[in-house]
């Protein structure tokens, strides 16, 4: 770990100013310190934001406003979230471990960086870590990599679970700027595709701080989070699906699906939701949804399996959500 100066932010605007000047914010630290030890992250200044008043979950406009410093554990344990947004609780509980979730925060988890093996190896070329150096995952071992939305610069995936559920719930990220102004960005638009600037994971700008995630009013219906991984627990998703789906009179009245493990961001495809809406559930429909979702999917060798896996698991999820038997 490179030496840094440590300070505590007293106010959100203060933290925002610090990031404008190149400091990194630390909350739970579960991802940042991991990367700092490997010197993949090398901040000169570390600003501890844990003393900011961003640690509560409050009701707002029929939904909930989850402070950026609410830990993953606290979020998943909140009665309102368990009752009204079970897909979010399930997704959080599918990620990491109790120990990590006790530290990891809502804002920090949104900013979690990729687990691409080559991003994690400082001695290998990686455009995300060192723009212009090349992508080692192309031509390397890419079993965990993206099948949607990747570029020639980067095929890394966003590794988290919570944000996949937030994308399905169409939550918004509340971001404060140095001048105290607030902007709201849909979670679906918060993370970026890599394009030719994979070093940027999301749309957060220097001088900005995530202050909260805002959930819309409860959508009800079936809420599922399905995660496929290499061991039963404590592993990143090969493929995950967050599903919020309502039925009325035998037809799908609401559908919102998001996918993890497939892309540089939690993947949401409006065409899939639209296709399902108003239709009677059937295997043919579910296959059609998978075909729409995966029309542009592309494997890079070791991750080719994600295409059939996604199709099969999507069918499992939709069967369960619509009450069709497995």
């Amino acid at each position: 770990m490179r030496a840094f100066t440590y300070s505590r932010a007293e106010a959100v605007t203060h933290a925002a100013e610090q990031t404008r000047d190149g400091a990194r914010l630390i909350a739970g630290g579960t991802n940042l310190l991991d990367l700092m030890k490997l010197e993949i992250e090398r901040p000169d200044e570390l600003v501890d934001i844990n003393r900011l008043e961003l640690g509560t979950i409050d009701e707002q406009d029929g939904g909930l406003r989850i402070g950026a410093l609410v830990t993953n554990s606290a979020c998943a344990a909140d009665e309102r979230i368990r009752r009204d947004y079970p897909v979010l609780a399930r997704a959080i509980l599918a990620g990491a471990t109790f120990q990590l979730r006790n530290k990891a925060t809502t804002g920090g988890n949104l900013c979690q960086r990729t687990r691409c093996y080559y991003f994690y190896n400082r001695d290998q070329p990686c455009n995300k870590r060192e723009p212009g150096s090349g992508c080692s995952a192309l031509g390397g071992f890419n079993r965990i990599h993206a099948i949607l939305g990747a570029s020639e610069s980067c095929i890394a995936t966003y590794p988290g679970d919570m944000a996949v559920a937030l994308a399905a719930l169409d939550a918004k990220v509340e971001i404060a700027a140095v001048d105290g102004s607030i902007r709201s960005v849909p979670v679906r638009a918060f993370h970026r595709l890599p394009g030719d600037t994979p070093e940027r994971d999301n749309v957060l700008e220097p001088g900005e701080v995530i202050t909260a995630v805002v959930l819309p009013s409860p959508a009800g219906g079936a809420q599922l989070y399905r995660k496929v991984r290499d061991r039963a627990s404590y592993a990143f998703a090969l493929v995950s699906i967050a599903c919020v789906l309502g039925m009325e009179d035998g037809r799908i009245s609401h559908a919102s699906l998001a996918f993890g493990g497939l892309a540089h961001k939690p993947w949401h495809d409006e065409r899939v939701d639209a296709l399902l809406l108003g239709r009677e559930p059937s295997d043919a429909l579910f296959d059609e949804a998978a075909d729409v979702l995966l029309a542009d999917a592309r494997g890079y060798g070791a991750n080719d399996f994600k295409i059939p896996m996604t199709k099969r698991v999507l069918k499992a999820v939709l069967r369960e959500a619509t009450g069709e038997n497995a």
Binding site: I26, G28, G29, D34, F98, Q99
Partner: peptide
């Protein structure tokens, strides 16, 4: 030393955490 094994688990204010992924100064 990277939050991947749990051997460093301690309780902070009663909650279990990986003590390797947090700074003493915090």
């Amino acid at each position: 030393d990277h939050g991947q094994c749990g051997a460093c688990t301690v309780l902070v204010n009663g909650q279990r955490i990986n003590s390797c992924l947090t700074l003493a100064v915090m």
